[in-house]
Each structure stands twice: as structure tokens, then as C-alpha cells.
Design a protein around this nucleic acid. Structure first.
Lengths: 113, 113
DNA sequence: TAGATATTTAGAAATATTTCTAAATATCTA
DNA sequence: TAGATATTTAGAAATATTTCTAAATATCTA
């Protein structure tokens, strides 16, 4: 999945809140819209962006369209982030200290002290 | 860290590429700018957004300003994503099948079959 | 201190995103 | 089939983001 679509989709607070709502179970577009102080077309637009990023899937059931999380893409993002940290994501606790994980070499201050 | 700043920062491809560059070791603003077909002020702007999200840190060394990754915030994002998946992030392999992880209850199609 | 080098700040122009209203589409029910 | 309900599509207005040029700031060296 193109990471750009995924990160763009995740960059909006309304969309992230929609993802949280879907964590509790699948919901119709209307049920999702009810939770926001925003029109249905606006929510529909956000759902579409999440769908394009494959963060959610939709299924029509009668008049309703139900949305659900697609967990595989979340794992791709987690993988991307672990990769930045030079970690496999499977083992090895990450020490909490800033900038101490990747330990390639010290920066050169051009002065060689 | 406000997740909104962090996700906004991650939503741009240039900024994500900068993060990848810093994975290899710390770099000055000029060294970063060289890798892009973009002016220095533009790169400076991107670095500032990454800094506001605390994804990078900067230290002045003489005329140069060196940037480095701040791994702690990456972990916050990983935690946010794991949370959506209802996982601790420490144990339990996630099954790959879409939508099968969170298994609250089936959706109601209003027809009760 | 004057000039050179590295980087950022200011602010404008182009582009992208968010949200709205109005209208279209899909499905259900009487 | 007609009307009601659920949702999306179209397109406009407001706002935010990206990138640029010009100028400012900070530090170094002769």
C-alpha cells in the first residue's frame, strides 16, 4: 500500500477518531456521522479517504453501508515505523533514551576537539 | 506529544525521507538539503515541522545545525497504532486476516436473516 | 571587524484539503 | 411504483500546506 495515502489518511483527527470508533465494532456511515458535529457528506468524504488507504473496508447491507477496520495496513505502518528505529518489531526492547538507539557514529563537529 | 502534530509531520513524503536519512546517522541541515531537489528554506521548513512534532532534535555545532532522530515519539505512534489493533505491542502475533482481529460481534444487517 | 558560509525567517503564490449545500443514487416498504 | 431513508457525488468557499525568493541571523576565519 502506498505509504503516502496511508499517512495522509492518518493525518486528520476526525479520521483517526473514526478508526477508534471502529475498534469497538463495525458501524454504518450514518452511525459514524452521528458522533460528529459535521455533515454526512463530510464524513462520507473522510470514510472515502480511509477506504482509499485501505485502513477500512465497507460492505453494503440493505440501505446501510457498514465500515470495518482493515488491520493489515496498520501493520504496514507499524513496520515502517519499526524500520526507522532499526528494529524488527519482533524482539528487543527499545531503550527509552532519546537518540541512543541508532548508534552509528558520533556527529562530526568539524573541530575534532 | 499531541498525535495530531506527529501524524501531520509524517504525512509528507519529503519529511518521511528525511527521517530515513537520519536513520543512517545525524546530518546537518545543508547535508539534508543536498539530497533533495528543493531549496534550503523549504527543507528548513520541513525540519521545523519534524522538530515541532519532536520526531527530530537539533543541535548547533559551529555554523552547522545537526539533526537526529528522537525515537521516543516513534514509539508513541507505534503505541497508538497497536492500541487501534487492541494489542499491547509486546506479545501476541497478529493474525494476518483482514478484520478478524477485533472480534466484538457481527454486524446487524437489520434482517436477522 | 569584514566577508564568507550555514541556516532560518518573512511573506507571497500555487496547490491541496476540509467542509458545506444541493442534487444524485441505491434500497426498502407500503 | 411512490415515497422514505441512507449514503454518496459534485462542486464551491474557506482554510491549510508546500514551495519559492529575498532578507535576516549566527558563526567562523583572516
Amino acid at each position: 500500500m502506498p505509504m503516502n495515502l496511508v499517512f495522509k489518511a492518518l493525518s486528520d483527527a476526525t479520521r483517526r477518531e473514526i478508526l477508534h470508533m471502529l475498534q469497538m465494532g463495525d458501524l454504518s456511515a450514518g452511525e459514524i456521522a452521528e458522533h460528529f458535529d459535521m455533515t454526512k457528506p463530510s464524513i462520507s468524504h473522510h470514510l472515502n479517504i480511509l477506504k482509499q488507504a485501505h485502513l477500512v473496508q465497507d460492505v453494503r447491507k440493505g440501505q446501510n453501508i457498514y465500515y470495518s477496520l482493515n488491520t493489515t495496513v496498520f501493520q504496514e505502518v507499524i513496520g515502517w515505523l519499526y524500520n526507522i528505529l532499526d528494529m524488527s518489531g519482533k524482539e528487543g526492547e527499545l531503550e527509552k533514551t532519546n537518540g541512543k538507539v541508532r548508534q552509528k557514529e558520533g556527529i562530526d563537529d568539524g573541530k575534532s576537539k
